[in-house]
Design a protein around this nucleic acid. Structure first.
Lengths: 218, 218
DNA sequence: TCTCGGGTACTCTGAATAGAGTACTCATCG
DNA sequence: CGATGAGTACTCTATTCAGAGTACCCGAGA
């Protein structure tokens, strides 16, 4: 209970949903799902209710009424406070204007590349490329479906952005595979050697002052 | 204590470090720092020791010796087991071959765009573009420094990838700003209208079946 | 009528984390 | 020679979170 201020973007999603009209948490969740926002913001109930409690504690939202339909669990409807609206705008402003470092899993993977033999890596990169292509095809299909439903692009920009990133990744993955295979990746000789000798697995060499012209620091 | 199997890539980093030679956790941390891997894998002590404990429990690493230097705290040196090496390779294989959905904060921001007025968003996007450019300049400087130190590209691919993604993002940010400013973004009319009327802030319209030709579902 | 799946609306629990704190050493500088 | 600051090597704690679980309702089909 209680969220590190501005850590979880789900809190922002809640604030913005409530800026439309008062809702109870479950309704927020279904709204986000309907609008496909759960593709961009991690959403699960455990976090949702924690986030809502924290927003209430910070005075950004207040409970408005709790209704009971039949013997279903109580629904607590929340509404946004003025402070909440301001916080939402500030937060969003900040999120748009200032890039933050996200840790992606492929970046992690890339930083451990030398742990596998180069030929294996080429195959794996090719596999990744195939999967990325498949994802792009799927995304395009979805795109089409959505335009047919006449939902303007404005409400779909995050998906567009995802596609742009995926295309850039695909490009890079292909290029890297080609460079390893073609032997043009600097460091490949050492890399292949390590795995050929079947030596104890080494991940990275000492900063490696080059072969031909050494010591040029004077 | 105990890590959801394969959730935290830091565990992979530990396995791969130990595949080089036995180390104690703190040494793993400094090694990762030296090699700049903490730019790609989230690293902090709290997680490090938890992750190490979990790897031990899973039999992927074993304590080899605990030495004490002076009255400094004990250092427990761990080494990789055979199972650990296999797990490292499997995990890495998987990470390279299979894309996973990462939730980035800019994607979240984009999905809430309509909550701010369009002119404000244009300014914020321009600001972001400037910052991205600055980051790219910095990255290029670092790149140069590293090549001068003759560290082969192989050990730097993750940084290269980050640059590729940043460039793609910059492109997209600029394009989006232009399209909003130029009025060519579909949905802009509605967006501007909402914020002009100063109506209660609304984030998204009902799926909006277009103006001219409606109902085409028969 | 029974029951089965699917939807509503949360609640609980056990991990997993981030980041600060601890407790010591060693080099340096006035 | 004492203070200061950087470095070593963890440990602790308060959150935070993911996912499963609970308890109910409703409609359709056998």
């Amino acid at each position: 209970m209680a969220v590190r201020n501005r850590s979880n973007p789900l809190a922002l999603a809640v604030l913005i949903c409530l800026s439309e009209r008062p809702m109870h948490p479950y309704e927020v969740a279904t709204t986000l799902r309907q609008r496909q926002k759960h593709e961009s913001v991690r959403l699960n109930y455990g976090s949702l209710y924690a986030v809502v409690a924290s927003l209430e504690k910070r005075g950004l939202i207040v409970p408005q009424a709790t209704k009971r339909a039949g013997r279903l669990p109580e629904r607590t409807v929340y509404r946004l406070t003025d402070a909440g609206l301001i916080e939402a705008h500030d937060w969003l402003t900040d999120l748009i204007s200032t890039p933050v470092k996200d840790f992606t899993s492929f970046e992690a993977a890339l930083s451990f590349l030398p742990a596998l033999p180069p030929e294996a890596v080429v195959d794996l990169l090719r596999e990744r490329a195939l999967r990325l292509e498949a994802e792009l095809v799927q995304a395009a299909a979805l795109q089409e479906l959505v335009t047919q439903q006449r939902l303007p692009r404005l409400f779909w920009v995050e998906e567009e952005f995802r596609t742009v990133l995926r295309e850039a990744e695909l490009d890079y993955v292909r290029r890297l595979a080609r460079e390893i295979e073609g032997g043009t990746l600097e460091g490949l000789d050492w890399w292949a050697e390590i795995h050929r000798t079947g030596a104890e697995p080494v991940w990275e060499p000492p900063p490696l002052a080059a072969g031909a012209e050494a010591a040029a620091d004077a």
